[in-house]
Simulated scan of single mutants.
Amino acid sequence: MNPDALRGAVDLSSLVRAAQQPPAQQASAGAAGPAPATGTGTSAVVRDVGDAEFGEVVELSRSVPVIVEFYAAGIAPALPGIVSSYGGRLVLATVDGNSSPQVAQAFQVQQVPAVVALVGGRPVNLFVGMPAEAEVRQVLDQVLELAAQNGVTGTVSADTPEEGEEEPAEQPLPPLHQEAFDAISRGDLEAAATAYRTAIAQSPADGDAVAGLAQVSLLQRLEGREASEIRDAAAAAPDDLDAQLAVADLDLSGGHVEDAFARLLTLFPGLDADGKAVVRTRLLDYFEIVGAEDERTITARRAFTNLLY
């Protein structure tokens, strides 16, 4: 990496302005609240953030390089342990792409996991998917070199437990969930899907496995495809169900949840029985990915029910 990598980056000023607004203004601007933590916790080195807090992360990157990892339901963050091992020379901000659409859109995130760096308030794309740990560390070392070239050499103090106080032990994942997580980390989506299917077969009420399988299936459908190709195909063939489903997948993976729901709900009434069955299945997958308690899911589910009766 070299300093030129910071040129032509996307403009994050709107996120900074949003973070500086009073709480009432943030709410009126439609900013989402903090994304729910998914096993990352919050510390000086690793923090889970959403739209409302992301401006603070941009500002922090002016003194210490920040790694931003986008995740979603069923795809837990993979970098907390690795970034923590750098002793405060790097900070990790984990972002739920579905719950933080403004941040996801600013970085043009099309699928998760996706990882970028912020150096001096400017973004640098790192990778989509999760490479092996050795490759991740090589990239993070390059980020530190780039940060040094741009005068961003600060550190944060890694949180340590008080004297005599033990850190709470992290709860291990169930074996099949861990198997799926490890497969996702090495980019083997088929193995992850198999692990989740096995977990569901053993325990049909395992909601986390159902959501994980839905998320992995979405990533499989988008794997190797270009966003521009998907959108061009959908625009050229508005009556092509497969093309519309693909662009809905793209919208959901990039955090445009309402757009994905609206596209499928608009398609549904004009389809034949087979097409309606396909869209129904896809919508149910989306509800699992976004979460049953999410207001966007509740609204879309209500609209879908109205279409059925």
Rank of each mutant, 00 (worst) to 15 (best):
Q244P: 03
I67P: 04
L271F: 10
E59C: 01
S253D: 03
V46C: 10
L126W: 06
I82K: 03
G50A: 02
S85N: 11
T194Q: 15
P22T: 12
L264A: 03
S28Q: 15
E295F: 08
R221E: 11
D242Y: 08
D285V: 06
A209N: 11
A35E: 01
T94R: 01
S99H: 14
V257K: 01
Q21N: 11
G39D: 11
R225S: 13
A214K: 09
R280I: 04
V103S: 02
D96T: 02
A211W: 00
V143Q: 02
E56T: 14
Q102H: 07
A24S: 11
P34L: 11
V143L: 01
A192L: 11
V279L: 04
Q25W: 06
G88W: 00
E223A: 14
A37R: 13
A273W: 05
A236N: 04
S157L: 13
Q244W: 07
G207N: 12
V45G: 00
E223Y: 10
G255S: 04
P174R: 12
R17E: 13
V210N: 06
I82P: 06
A235N: 08
R221H: 09
L271W: 05
A31K: 06
A227D: 07
D249L: 01
L219R: 14
G212T: 09
D285H: 12
Y309M: 12
A114W: 08
S14I: 05
I289T: 01
L146K: 05
D159T: 14
A192Q: 12
L222I: 11
V45E: 14
L267F: 08
A201G: 11
D251Y: 14
V46K: 08
A9E: 13
A246Y: 04
L60N: 01
A106I: 09
A37Y: 04
V128I: 13
E163V: 10
G8W: 12
D239V: 00
S253F: 02
L250G: 00
T42G: 05
G275A: 11
A303V: 04
P238N: 03
L264W: 01
D232M: 08
E145G: 12
P113H: 06
Q215Y: 05
R302E: 13
P36E: 13
V95P: 01
